[in-house]
Amino acid sequence: MALDIQAATDAQGRCRIALHGMLDAGTSPLLDRELERVLRDGTPSALVFDLAGLEYVSSAGLRVLFKARRAMQQHGAPLLMLSPQPQVRKVFEIVHATPVDEIFASTAELDRYLDTIQRRMLGAGDED
């Protein structure tokens, strides 16, 4: 089965990448290329992987996600996972791939979190 990738950046510079299908040895290079493209256009203020449609992930896919995480960390920007399916979540948990606070069950929950971060950053900026 293939992997479908849809990336979109919103007005706040947050990039959301929705994955559908399987992220394995065969399809992970597609995501790798897409990530390179996104990061080349400038680091987004936040990177969100929408995993609601992702049915499977193997170590090859995990590597790409880890790589994305490191790239975002270097710019001090958050990488967040939205709605992983149980099977995907199980793999994350086995390899301790993602701190629990980086996984969100719903878009509303995620948006609230991102807005909070943004306000905090804006607040910190005002104080400078």
Partner: peptide, 23 residues
Amino acid sequence: DPAAWADGDARVGGLGLYLVRRL
């Protein structure tokens, strides 16, 4: 130790075999 991957070092190998052994 999965901490190595969690730190974002994708070059560390053994991720796949780690999964196999844990499952």
